[in-house]
Amino acid sequence: MSFFSRSPWILHYDGSSCNGCDIEVLACLTPLYDVERFGVLNTGNPKHADILLVTGSVNERNIEIVENLYRQMPDPKVVVAVGACACSGGIFARAYNIQGGIDKVIPVDVYVPGCAARPESIIDGVVQGIAALEAKRKKTA
């Protein structure tokens, strides 16, 4: 399988999420789910990261931060939108300062639905993200 060939690092950013999906992303790192089995490591530095996990619906203030984090990541890079808010705005799509989805701000490669997204779905999303990363790497190489 392609996803065991490299160890992509993950950067997580909470773009106006309610904490539900953030906590589930963290839960993926804990013993019961343990995404580190796939060689994935959570990092705090965008310059080390290959996969950006964004939760939340991105408000006006966060646009700049999300764009900045995305710019700082080295190519090839993959964005995984986790949760209904990140995918489309979810229940907050009608709020006045919400963009309604990360894909309005940066290009999204994988959409993980759910409110809150379950750890199993997040693992699925990360695995798909790793595959997308591998495809991008082949294209640029």
């Binding site: 894909d103 994988v110 779905s121 997308a132």
Partner: peptide, 19 residues
């Protein structure tokens, strides 16, 4: 059952979201 994960390849020609 949980909902399926969607990929960018499923985004429509006018940018319609998958799902």
């Amino acid at each position: 059952n949980s909902r399926a994960v969607h990929l960018r390849s499923e985004v429509g020609p006018q940018g319609q979201r998958p799902g």
